[in-house]
């Protein structure tokens, strides 16, 4: 199982094993990592699952799709080149070790 490390706005880090195919959002929310709100449950309709992807994984994670790109324009925290909606990143074995910082404000 690939691991994901979440860095919360207060600096706490949590590392979880993800099911391959589950999203970075699902893995966090189901296990109670706070800070990712994910109101729409992964439909790319709420922009409340905003994370900043660690530089080392930017290439592996790839770019946001068109809809996600549009939704990212409306995030509550500042959008940076590292911004992604975590519901749109599906876990794969080669993403093992993925580290994301959770955006401080989601709603």
């Amino acid at each position: 199982m690939p691991e994901i490390t979440y860095i919360s706005p207060d600096g706490t880090t949590t590392t979880l094993d993800a099911r391959v195919g589950d999203s970075v959002m699902e893995t966090a929310v189901k296990n109670g990592v706070t800070g990712i709100v994910a109101e729409c449950g992964g439909a790319c309709a709420c922009a409340t699952c905003h994370v900043y992807v660690d530089g080392a994984f930017m290439d592996a994670v790839g770019e946001a799709g068109d809809l996600e790109d549009d939704m990212l324009d409306g995030t509550a925290s500042e959008r940076t080149p590292h911004s992604r909606l975590s519901c749109q990143i599906k876990m794969r074995d080669d993403l093992n070790g993925l580290t994301v910082r959770i955006a401080p404000k989601q709603v």
Binding site: R19, D22, E26, K30, N31, G32, C40, G41, A43
Partner: peptide, 28 residues
């Protein structure tokens, strides 16, 4: 919501519909 969308299309399984994992409730 996925019941009429991804689940029906076969793109989501029951586990992926869970809002929280069973251990989440136990821990809290």
């Amino acid at each position: 919501p996925p019941l009429s969308k991804a689940y029906l299309a076969g793109d989501a399984d029951v586990e992926s519909l869970e809002l929280r994992s069973p251990s989440f409730y136990v821990e809290r």
